[in-house]
Simulated assay, not measured.
Amino acid sequence: MPLIDRECVRRLLESDDPDATLVFVRGDCVVLPGGEVDDAHKGLVIARRDDMLPHVPDGAPTDQVLDDLAHRLDNVVRDLGG
């Protein structure tokens, strides 16, 4: 069962915050504004929206693109011991 799914990635990419950051907290993916990522959360950062945008083709990302990104990010969480 994946820890990061399509909807986590969608929330990250569609966030209104220009510094949106995906953080894995207590078993859940949470999108926080970059300014709210404090010392307690820094080790739990999975990705920043700006890091993901180069992997998204122009226009709205397809479900396949979201799934591919989710799979990559899920591996990151697992490497962190999520």
Rank of each mutant, 00 (worst) to 15 (best):
T62Y: 01
R26G: 03
A40L: 14
R6V: 04
L13R: 03
L3A: 10
Q64P: 01
A40Y: 12
G34L: 09
H41W: 09
T21F: 02
R11H: 10
C29S: 08
D67M: 09
A47F: 08
M1T: 11
V23M: 11
D67E: 13
C29A: 13
D58E: 09
A60L: 01
V45M: 06
L22S: 00
D58W: 07
V77P: 02
D74G: 08
Q64Y: 04
D67P: 05
D58G: 12
A20N: 04
D74K: 03
G81Q: 06
Q64A: 10
L73G: 05
L69F: 00
L73Q: 05
V9I: 07
L13V: 04
D28R: 15
Q64E: 13
I46F: 01
T21H: 01
P61K: 01
V30S: 06
L73H: 01
A40V: 13
R6C: 04
L69W: 00
M52Q: 13
R48H: 08
G34M: 08
L73P: 02
A60D: 07
V37M: 11
D39W: 14
F24S: 01
H71T: 10
T62V: 04
G59D: 06
L32V: 14
S15K: 11
R6P: 01
G27H: 12
L32F: 14
V25T: 11
D50K: 02
A40S: 13
L13S: 06
D63L: 02
D39G: 14
G59Q: 06
R78N: 05
P61D: 07
N75S: 12
L66C: 04
E14S: 10
L53D: 08
D39Q: 15
A20T: 04
N75G: 12
D17I: 03
R48L: 11
